[in-house]
């Protein structure tokens, strides 16, 4: 092993079985790594386990389409710090998903609620669009809208003042997703789409996640770990030696 490699081993703590991705230069993460890291980070930031699962799903879904899901989730976790569930979860009326105090909705909470209501009258979409927002980091809504479209077996269009993205029932995505990634808060409308183009799926490449994003997601993830005690160390391995 070269001196450089030795240093890398120590710098990255080779003893970890979790997500010890090198944070110095960023890393290309697999879908599974993104999903697991983001689930833990979301839980560490205070989401319930069930919503943290949704956060992991959303970040990985975006990453497989070349969008920076981990970065968007991290930004949202910071925005959500110190805000209660009541402030960030949607208040639902027919055709309208908004925050109780008119502030920014959590896109994970909104997305999960939209999917939960996909077969209920609140999201009928027959006569009129459903208005949503204002919602923070709205790119994180796309994975949920894709599931919504799949559940309803029809295309769905997210429209805002500067663009639109179309999600198809078979997982396709068309339109201004890259522009949506730049938006930090917006109001939007959901509309049913008529005939939709064929899915032109592209080969997936592992997403390069920046060192800063990795470092901060890891910090959130570490909040759900328990500091080691002698008791926990002692109970973790074999009761007798491995050297036989």
């Amino acid at each position: 092993m070269t001196a450089e490699q030795q240093e890398a081993v120590e710098a990255n703590d080779p003893t970890r079985s979790g997500s010890p991705v090198p944070t110095t230069n960023g890393a290309r993460l697999s879908q599974n790594e993104i999903e697991q890291l983001c689930l833990k980070a979301a839980r560490g930031a205070g989401m319930s386990w069930g919503l943290a699962e949704e956060a992991g799903f959303a970040a990985a879904w975006l990453a497989t389409r070349g969008l920076d899901g981990p970065g968007a989730l991290l930004a949202q976790l910071w925005v959500g710090q110190g805000r209660s569930w009541r402030e960030i979860c949607p208040v639902i009326a027919p055709g309208r998903f908004r925050a109780a105090d008119g502030g920014g909705l959590c896109p994970i909470a909104l997305g999960a609620a939209l999917c939960d209501h996909a077969r209920l009258p609140e999201t009928s979409l027959v006569e009129t669009a459903v208005r949503v927002g204002p919602v923070d980091h709205p790119v994180l809504l796309l994975p949920f809208l894709a599931d919504f479209a799949r559940t309803r077996r029809e295309g769905l269009r997210l429209v805002w003042s500067r663009g639109a993205v179309l999600l198809t029932a078979d997982g396709g995505m068309f339109g201004d997703a890259a522009a949506l990634e730049q938006e930090t808060r917006l109001d939007a409308a959901l509309e049913v789409e008529g005939p939709v183009p064929d899915d032109t799926s592209t080969q997936w490449e592992p997403l390069m996640v920046s060192a800063e994003t990795l470092g901060e997601l890891n910090s959130f993830a570490l909040r759900i770990t328990v500091p080691t005690s002698e008791v926990s160390r002692a109970g973790a391995g074999a009761a007798i030696g491995d050297n036989d």
Binding site: T15, T225, A236
Partner: peptide
Amino acid sequence: YVSEEKLEPRLGNRFEEDGASL
């Protein structure tokens, strides 16, 4: 729980060890 030191899953005793809130 998951240990901070090794990120490995472990099993603690609720009445003898800290960390049950995690």
